[in-house]
């Protein structure tokens, strides 16, 4: 399942890199494609293993908020 989040706090390319690290850190997340330019991240995950709220919590732990 793919979901797109708006991350308004990204302020450089490194932020995108840090968020993309979630694909290695979260079980059930198969790919993360974050873009500083678009201020967005696309998360490809398996909803049977991980929930959306868990992903959002992981994003928050990295210091970013998820926009509407």
């Amino acid at each position: 399942m793919k979901i797109t989040y708006t991350i308004p706090d990204m302020h450089c390319g490194n932020c995108a890199m840090r968020l993309e690290a979630l694909e290695d850190e979260l079980q059930g997340v198969t790919a993360v494609d974050a873009s500083y330019h678009k201020q967005q991240m696309v998360v490809d995950f398996n909803p049977e293993i991980i929930t959306e709220s868990e992903i959002k919590a992981a994003i928050a732990r990295k210091g970013y908020s998820v926009g509407e």
């Binding site: 450089c12 390319g13 995108a16 873009s35 500083y36 330019h37 201020q39």
Partner: peptide, 8 residues
Amino acid sequence: FRYFNIEP
């Protein structure tokens, strides 16, 4: 202006 930053 974000596009002035080149993303690898």
